[in-house]
Design a protein around this nucleic acid. Sequence first.
DNA 1: TTCGTTCTAAATCATTAGATTGATAAAATA
DNA 2: TATTTTATCAATCTAATGATTTAGAACGAA
Lengths: 232, 232
Amino acid sequence: MREFKRKSRVLLVDDNTDHLRGIKELVSLEGCYDVVGATTSANVAINLIKKYRPDIVLMDINMPEKDGLQAIQEIEKLGLDTRVIALSGYDDADLIFRAMKIGAKGYVLKTMASAQLIYAIDEVAAGKVYLPSALSSRFFEYFQRSFKGEAVVSDEENLLTYLTSREEEVLELLTQGNNYKGIAGKLFISETTVKTHVNNIFQKLQVNDRTQAVLYALNNGFGNRKRTKIAV
Amino acid sequence: MREFKRKSRVLLVDDNTDHLRGIKELVSLEGCYDVVGATTSANVAINLIKKYRPDIVLMDINMPEKDGLQAIQEIEKLGLDTRVIALSGYDDADLIFRAMKIGAKGYVLKTMASAQLIYAIDEVAAGKVYLPSALSSRFFEYFQRSFKGEAVVSDEENLLTYLTSREEEVLELLTQGNNYKGIAGKLFISETTVKTHVNNIFQKLQVNDRTQAVLYALNNGFGNRKRTKIAV
DNA sequence: TTCGTTCTAAATCATTAGATTGATAAAATA
DNA sequence: TATTTTATCAATCTAATGATTTAGAACGAA
């Protein structure tokens, strides 16, 4: 597989010079990688990334100067094809979770065997997201803990299903902070009509005012492209 | 490792009788598992779990009668030590995500090699959460997509930081759908005082009404113990 | 002490929100 | 065809909300 692809371009970031050199040697030894840069500064790294557009960035996230996680975020914001693998000294579940959340495509411990690092690079270079199984186990524990006790949206009890499509439109605008006038203007209907719809929404959702309606909507999977609460 | 432990007690649930028999044989062949039950009904399964308290449940989640995911949820709600592995015919990212979210300790495809299933059981029985790497890759893609584009709470622009602690209390109650009277009652202050606080909140958050204030709060990491938006 | 901040509170006023009732017309459905 | 649902709008009325101003008490910092 790897033989058929062009060489992946890799950038290394680690504030520890010795470690940086070590990784560089390690990665360089692999025939299929070009190390296009190696720096001890996250800020420099971001500039190098803009310039050289590497395929893979190995980013130490335990750096004093600039937080590696923050650096990853900034890289992700660039919207490039660059895929970042977090390098860390700690297998802390929270760290792993945060790294993956902000878009790291992998997370490898510095203490892991070098073969493990190379494997991770291979996987990420191949377009996958890769966590060594020991770490993914930790991740999932954290993930499940963070969801535990959260109200589960069961379809049968979801009052949102009773809304007509027009009412959904109105509710959508309510969840954007519009008042009657704003909604009326946007839907090209009269304010009184909006009031009627809103009142019907209140009845169906069994709430007393718009704030409660909005909260119900957000907590029960309404237009939750942005929210993580997902109907099961 | 496995030799030192007591036998893990396993319950099998699959609406397909043939498949159920197949899994049963497969698992039984492993020396270290006791199959304490095998049923085609999720409802029966739940009763069996209450009765026999198995260590592991292999749950088919593609059943017509009762949704397997729902069954997993109910099992999790029991609060036992029973760990559930989802068995599915589909490697759909959304399905995987939902299963892991509600507490499945593993997810294995029916098409996977039987060794893979046994390995998963081993890992889960050992207390880990296990996803085959092909599926965990899918999971992570979905996971990262679901977080992508989400406003990152950057402290420097977050107007919430300007609120006093009292104002935060008031806002907290606003985000719970309380009106003036409700807030006044809960904080043991007069309604007019609440109005003052609320007005100050509006000024600081640069919004016009409570709904917008609540929306701003929710979208900017306010009191997100329940939300998944996590400051990085 | 003086100053600034915060929390408290009241009074007043304008605006908005929400409840209620009633009505029309189109569209879907039985 | 008869009935129900949905969407539209009006009028009226009460309650709730929000803006503004003013002000006392407590506290800590300069």
